[in-house]
């Protein structure tokens, strides 16, 4: 069976909300703004903190191997979330949301055709197990 989740090429940013508003990241990177002053930047290839510019001398900008993720087709993702996510998901696409899913701290990036599930590496084993229990192969 193929692995559902892989280590994501992430740069983690901790700064101020204003600095994050003005940050520049590579165009092909996906930015998940996990808090007003924090973001996960998922790069297209390898994590690359140097490719990010932020106007904050104190910003923490570090490569972060601690995130696992996997893309799941929309229909399968929705079925799984219907059964395992008790909070209301965003309707617009694309959209970011985060919260407890299947009793694990999950970040979700919704696109029209697919959904990215992101979870701390330490919970990846468990999320994989629960995704499979939920019928995702």
């Amino acid at each position: 069976m193929p692995e559902l989740l892989h280590t994501l090429p992430v740069t983690r940013i901790v700064t101020t909300a204003a600095a994050l508003d003005g940050a520049s990241v590579p165009e092909d990177a996906l930015v998940l703004r996990t808090a007003p002053d924090e973001a996960l930047v998922i790069h297209a290839e390898a994590a690359d903190p140097d490719a990010i510019t932020i106007d904050d001398a104190h910003a923490i900008v570090v490569a972060d191997a601690g995130w696992s993720g996997g893309w799941i087709p929309t229909a399968a993702a929705d079925t799984f979330l219907d059964g395992n996510c008790s909070w209301a998901r965003p309707i617009d696409r694309p959209a970011f949301a985060q919260g407890m899913v299947a009793h694990l701290p999950v970040k979700l990036w919704f696109e029209a055709e697919r959904t990215l599930f992101v979870v701390p590496h330490v919970s990846a084993h468990e999320l994989t197990h629960r995704l499979r229990e939920g019928g995702i192969a």
């Binding site: 694990l104 330490v122 468990e126």
Partner: peptide, 10 residues
């Protein structure tokens, strides 16, 4: 819809 509390794995 409920799950047992999961432990972290190093």
């Amino acid at each position: 819809g409920s799950h047992l509390p999961a432990l972290a794995r190093t």
